[in-house]
């Protein structure tokens, strides 16, 4: 019950946000980007929060989906709504593949990290290298490609809001089914879970596929919303690090963690923005401090101080 009440509360609060910003394009952009970050964090929560799969290619997954959709739309003159699902599926397939191979080959944390890091750099260099299709570093203008509803300030906010709510509902549905039980078991101890008859490979691949599908969806929506995509938007520092910080800050393995973290990181980002390059330093320091001293995240703090059973 607490889960559905929380979902409703989160939904109502986020749905009312555009009314409070009073149509300012600046705040409208910040809040929409906050939703993108929250979607990414929900996706990463499945991967890392529940099944301890540290993917260092979140940006590349979102970027693969975004670039595939945009390039196909532009080159073949298709509607974005036909190519977005394709991009999402490819991201999901790639994530599932990495997970399957890593579980099958018995790769530990380090090797999965290195494989996905290598993929993320390969993606980056491919986008730079395939200049005729991607315009390299300059990027592609996505405005006016036909995804009208994702371009207007208010309609795009509600599209991403809908995506986030779908992600959260999907997440809670999964967590209250057998899959959730399996996730909890294998995040405690994989060997014990395997011995208890849980198909560890299957559930890790499920987590990775669903997470990567969500990354792909977030990436594709973001691509059409932001108007211009370039490889820098999907790099390690602009996606992976920020999402990692968001998830840990909010609270790993919880329903509202990604939402709280997304709000907190958006605020921090706005505070640091005037100082230019400072954000790299701040994110690095945050990553260290959070992992050393704040591993439960905001959710754990709220649970303790307000004595609420926050899901």
């Amino acid at each position: 019950m607490a889960r559905y009440a929380t979902l409703l509360l989160v939904g109502v609060i986020l749905a009312l946000v555009p009314l409070t910003t009073g149509g300012s394009p600046y705040y409208s952009r910040i809040t929409t980007l906050m939703l993108v970050l929250m979607v990414y964090a929900v996706a990463f929560n499945m991967l890392f929060g529940h099944t301890k799969q540290l993917f260092l290619c979140l940006g590349a997954l979102a970027g693969s989906s975004a670039y595939l959709s945009v390039v196909l739309t532009r080159e073949l003159g298709l509607s974005p709504w036909a190519t977005i699902p394709l991009g999402i599926l490819v991201a999901g397939f790639l994530g599932g593949l990495f997970s399957y191979v890593s579980v099958r080959r018995g790769l530990g944390v380090i090797f999965l990290g290195v494989v996905t890091l290598a993929f993320s750099l390969i993606f980056y260099n491919l986008v730079l290298g395939l200049r005729e299709l991607t315009n390299g570093e300059t990027g592609i203008v996505t405005q006016g490609l036909g995804a009208g509803i994702l371009e207007g300030p208010r309609s795009s906010y509600y599209m991403l809001f809908a995506l986030l709510m779908i992600a959260l509902v999907l997440y809670s549905a999964l967590m209250s089914s057998r899959v959730g039980v399996a996730f909890r078991a294998l995040s405690d101890d994989e060997l014990t879970a395997e011995l208890a008859g849980i198909d560890v490979t299957r559930y890790k691949v499920i987590a990775a596929t669903v997470g990567s599908l969500l990354m792909g969806a977030g990436g594709a929506f973001y691509a059409y919303y932001t108007g211009l995509i370039s490889p820098a938007l999907f790099s390690l520092i602009s996606v992976d690090i920020v999402v990692l910080i968001t998830l840990v800050f909010g609270g790993m393995g919880s329903l509202v963690g990604p939402v709280l973290g997304g709000a907190a990181v958006t605020v921090i980002d706005e505070l640091v923005r005037p100082f230019g390059q400072l954000n790299v330093l701040v994110y690095g320091a945050l990553l260290i401090v959070l992992f050393l001293a704040f591993r439960g995240g905001l959710v754990a703090v709220l649970r303790k101080t307000a004595k609420l059973p926050i899901p």
């Binding site: 390059q277 320091a285 260290i288």
Partner: peptide, 25 residues
Amino acid sequence: GEERLLLGLVLTLGLSFVIDGYLNL
């Protein structure tokens, strides 16, 4: 074991950004 690998990976990743950010500033 794995716990140390994971924490070490994240801490040194953070450190790399701190050094890069500091030197570039």
